[in-house]
Design a protein around this nucleic acid. Sequence first.
DNA 1: ATTATTTTGTACCGTTTCGCATAAAAAGCG
DNA 2: CGCTTTTTATGCGAAACGGTACAAAATAAT
Lengths: 207, 207
Amino acid sequence: MTTARPRGRPRNYDPEQVLESALRAFWKGGYSGTSLDTLAAATGLNRPSLYAGLGDKRTIYIKAMRRFQDYAREHFGAALQARPEDTSFVDVVARYLHAAINVDGPHESIGVSGCAVISTATAEALTDPEIRQVLDNVLEEMDHQLLARLREAQAQGELPPNTDIEAMGFLLSSTAHSIGIRSRAGHTKRDMEKMVDSLARALCPVK
Amino acid sequence: MTTARPRGRPRNYDPEQVLESALRAFWKGGYSGTSLDTLAAATGLNRPSLYAGLGDKRTIYIKAMRRFQDYAREHFGAALQARPEDTSFVDVVARYLHAAINVDGPHESIGVSGCAVISTATAEALTDPEIRQVLDNVLEEMDHQLLARLREAQAQGELPPNTDIEAMGFLLSSTAHSIGIRSRAGHTKRDMEKMVDSLARALCPVK
DNA sequence: ATTATTTTGTACCGTTTCGCATAAAAAGCG
DNA sequence: CGCTTTTTATGCGAAACGGTACAAAATAAT
């Protein structure tokens, strides 16, 4: 059984795929630097279809950023999950940093690098309150996701009771932000992978 | 004695002041988001004078970013200088973080916030190799400035011999990067000032 | 005073930008 | 088969964009 076909002419595109293409276009060229023509070429749609399907440029951008945020949340969440083979919380921190490299580092296959939101929303944040809010929401969610896990770790005894959870969370999220910026500047995965273990040890009060 | 006047009609503006105004315009609106008209209005010059005096848009942008880089280098350098009242290296680290807040945090008087380069060059980095290089140069200089000071500290016994200097430098510069991003997202100086001491302690192996 | 030189300001050029109006196309419904 | 509904595609239009031509203005040199 298939869902009942809607009334008129059927859509000629997959909305998910179009949003993903739009994300990649903005990810590469930024908000102001990506025109509707570029967006149309990237998605395969023409401008009126784009507009009818996703809204105006700003709306498409914000939807694309939300999509990236979903993707990032998922990966960071998975990295923070405890695993049987973890010998200390250093392993969890290292996994988080690897996730940051995978999420915010170079994506060779699609020719982009950096956190899509941080790399593009910062430029607009002071002139567009809604985009600033998207950026702030991403930062806040990253901090929150980390702090929740760090508190749990402290409660479970994975981290010493005197650990400054807030400072540690700030440093971890900051490192993730910076990994995105560094890769945007051309740094490779290998450049950053080789730092992960020493960073994890330096970040973790558990020696 | 004054310098011999050049031949033709004298300039009606101070090049330093114009470049500073251009910096503030790009700082606020980003590269793609700032038009030559906006730039002309901000500097008080008209477009032809701007072009004759500073070059085309990209050239003006790059000169403005270099100006910001000079400003940042100076402040970070001053913060890293040893002071008689320092009781431990934690004080130096805290001073560096305060400098990051002053340089990359909100500048209420001129209505901008964030590191001018990171906040605006990241959006262009993947499509403009020269701008990417400006960004990379800033990141590299921050790391270099920090590492030089950390090595010195280790040599002077301010830091334990087993300190992982590279990791510590990476974390410190990353924190500075992130402070710029957070303030771009709307975080206030006070939000971040209140974290400085705990961050400095968490970053410093000297407890 | 005249000339040479440089800066200034208006006005313009061709292109790009975003958004939409409008008609053709593709489907279901009666 | 017509009729309605929805999507597609061409293409328009007003505005904004980066850049420059050109003449007027301001100064030094002769």
